[in-house]
Design a protein around this nucleic acid. Structure first.
Lengths: 334, 334
DNA sequence: ATGCCACGCGAAAGCGTTTTCTCACGCCGC
DNA sequence: GCGGCGTGAGAAAACGCTTTCGCGTGGCAT
């Protein structure tokens, strides 16, 4: 590389091309009125000098920082992570940096300070990442003059832009998959009865089943999202000798708990009972064919991407945007 | 808010305080020679006017963008995610944005273009995030004039700054934990024999055991990192009637596979056989007390934080930095 | 009284773009 | 031959800050 270390600026290009600074700028930005021949000469010069405009100078002049703020409650939580990664990946592809403000939403005065700080940085947009639909996030949209989008949480302002999982579709997808396998005696082990996600998944499941004229066998077992609860529920099913050929676990933890107890009791999965979970807890790292538990991926990564895309997209479509889930077939419904 | 919408600039502050622009700047930055009384007057004025310096202007003047580039192979992979999140969290706390360039390391010309792009943005540092120690990453340190740090991968340039898991300590920790529980007949189900991480974990384990005058019962079972291999290994242990009271699974997948087969065979965990895995696959979302599998957290989040901290820290300490693991006790060694 | 130095402050030159406004010029129609 | 107009290009302001340098003032030593 015989390239000189000094950065080449637009002035350099202009000087070499024998034009003024402003002309060079206009030529390279496509704007302004420039004769075709001049423009081409400038473009060639820029190319030859290996000119790259200084991004900071552009930012200052344009008032845009090419940076998006991500506000999260707890970035390191298992569910927030993929959303943030998805968003950051998309944003990076579009030359947008991410400024992650974690846990600053909580205290009111911290928040005020953060907002001032972000505005001082001339942030281009704000992405609020939550931890599910348990409770609504206080809307911060009014605090910014740039677009604000909410992912994996509900804002308390209905006209905010929100991206959330489609729990209804998840339930429906589980039901349809089990039906397609010929299963008709389906049980559901769910989380707390007052959990919104659990309710929606149940609704979706019921809808799928009723579409085929099938109803859930026995009542829905409500507990928690844990593996321990899955085991407890499975023990009860065994003790009461439920006549079932499939179980939809509210999430993968529950499904694993069920499976373990079933396995210990000699119930064969999937031959005797097919099993579906939710969350894609095993992730996608291992060879897809080797995956064990059939599960439904909520689409958190895609949700982060979609939210980020929407943020950059210009047009802000208010209200709820549902992220379609994905079925990932494993051995438990082989 | 009766605050005028117009942004207040440093000139405004200077004018109101009755000083020049440069004096105001020096007063607020702590630098320069300013009388205490003048400085205080300016600071009060700034406070009263709610002045925040325009970050972009500062960046341009200082040549620092307060942005760090993160270069990854596959940001969405399960292992890269926590590293990136950890780094981003730490960086966000220090007002540094993250520009995530995913999968751009692969193709040589893409990479060249990315490097030019980052340099044009006046990036403050580069963090290369890999996917483990399987193969070395081509060093890009020479391409940047800013510090470059590697996390969760090895650079092919030994003097680069690298942050990696301490697989040796992981093995040792597993061994010590099992020994502390009084277990002496310990088996190890590992991944491929030529896998570096697997080798180091085995070494660490052996070291811990030999410290107590204990040796591994039977040979080490080498296979893969999968749950299926855990099951296969467990079946073999059962078939050959191994006399063991503990199993160290090379990772959580393996451990889960072992556990499932044991459970189905009536082997009680942890009464008959204690079980330890690696990776903290269950995450940390659920109530810690409720966690099932005893595991060793490799510390990927902490590694991301440490790498980011080192990057911002100024002093670059070349060579390998090992991330200490964490033992997370669950029911399988209760 | 004169020279020096330290101190406090301001003028001005960057940092590298974008963008508005103005100007020179040649061509056209009248 | 003259006013008008469209066209291409440059001058200069703006973006908002940091930093170097120089200048005036007062106190101190000579």
């Amino acid at each position: 590389m015989a390239v000189s270390k000094k950065k080449v600026t637009l002035s350099d290009v202009a000087a070499v091309a024998g034009v003024s600074l402003s002309t060079a700028s206009k030529a390279l930005n496509g704007g302004g009125r420039i004769s075709a021949v001049t423009r081409q000469r400038i473009e060639e010069t820029a190319l030859r000098l290996d000119f790259r405009p200084n991004g900071l100078a552009q930012s200052l002049a344009l008032g845009r920082s090419r940076t998006v703020a991500v506000l999260s409650d707890r970035a390191e939580s298992t569910f927030a992570r993929p959303v943030i990664i998805g968003a950051a990946t998309y944003l990076g592809q579009h030359e947008q940096a991410v400024l992650l403000y974690d846990a600053r939403l909580r205290r009111r005065d911290d928040m005020a300070e953060s907002i001032r700080s972000l505005n001082a940085r001339r942030i281009d947009g704000v992405l609020v990442v939550g931890e599910g639909l348990h409770h609504r996030t206080r809307s911060v949209s009014a605090e910014f003059s740039v677009p604000v989008t909410y992912a994996f949480t509900l804002s308390d302002e209905p006209d905010d832009v929100m991206f959330v999982p489609d729990n209804h579709a998840i339930g429906r997808m589980a039901g349809e998959h089990l039906l397609a396998l010929g299963r008709r005696r389906i049980a559901h082990v769910a989380a707390e009865a007052d959990d919104l996600a659990a309710q929606l998944r149940l609704e979706g499941l019921r809808e799928a089943l009723s579409g085929a004229g099938v109803t859930l066998v026995h009542e829905v077992l409500h507990g928690s999202w844990t593996e321990a609860w899955g085991r407890t529920a499975a023990q009860r099913m065994l003790a009461e000798r439920w006549d079932i050929d499939a179980v939809f676990g509210g999430n993968d933890h529950i499904a694993r708990g069920v499976e373990n107890v079933f396995a210990a009791a000699g119930v064969r999965v999937p031959q005797d009972v097919a099993l579906v979970g939710v969350d894609n807890w095993e992730g996608l790292i291992i060879d897809q064919s080797a995956r064990h538990l059939t599960t439904i991926d909520v689409g958190l990564i895609g949700m982060g991407e979609a939210a980020a895309a929407h943020l950059l997209g210009g047009e802000q479509a208010p209200g709820l945007h549902y992220q379609p889930p994905t079925l990932i077939v494993g051995e438990t419904t082989g």
